[in-house]
Amino acid sequence: MNCQNHPDLPATAFCRACGKALCASCQRNALGTVYCQEHAPAPAQTTAAPPPESPWTAPPTAPPLSAPNPGVSPGLAFILGLIPGVGAIYNGQYAKGIIHVVVLGLLISITSSGASGGMEAMFGLLIMLWFFYMAFEAYHTAKRRQSGLPVDEFSSIFPVRGQGFPAAPVVLIALGVLFLLNNLDIIRFQHMARYWPVALIALGVYLLYARLSAGAPPSSGGNSHDQR
């Protein structure tokens, strides 16, 4: 058999798409096999994805869903979310499911091993709170997926990137420092409890900062009619 384009040349291969006999000059190698000129995939598609613009590898994100996905059931996500980590797995967020389970395990370990520095009751309540947070978080994520909104792999109910004062990180760091000082026997909670009004002062300073900073978004308390 000879090449269909050049009848005087012997065929060396056949197109994978149309079966046309091809000579050595007509065949196009792509994707590890042979195509004719018409069926060869565009070279732009054969190359790998363009290199990311930033030099760091971002953590994998769930593929953004463009179309509404009616197959996702928020109610089922809530029920599955009562099982630690399974709600996130239902939403396709495997890494977040692992994180949820690890956080729950840490909370239970802290409570049961007596490492909480005399605050077992607070950690017991935190465990319950975390249980229901996982369920509600799975519910809200499923609702977003159902309506076709993009979902980050590490999405949470709370907006991560706020514009105002970074309150959540400061609270986290302060809590961590307090527990560390207590656990290392530097300052015990019993001694710190004497200075609890400092928390009121800090809260007042924060509210003052929030009210006086120009262009700050209105506080989440819902007082949209604040008089200056």
Partner: peptide, 26 residues
């Protein structure tokens, strides 16, 4: 050295620092 039952608040501190760095992005 120090047991994990005493040093676990370091995790909270590191998480807070990372969140703080992330919030400076905007």
């Amino acid at each position: 050295g120090y047991g994990f039952t005493r040093t676990w608040p370091v995790l909270i501190i590191v998480l807070g620092i990372l969140k703080l760095l992330e919030s400076t992005a905007g």
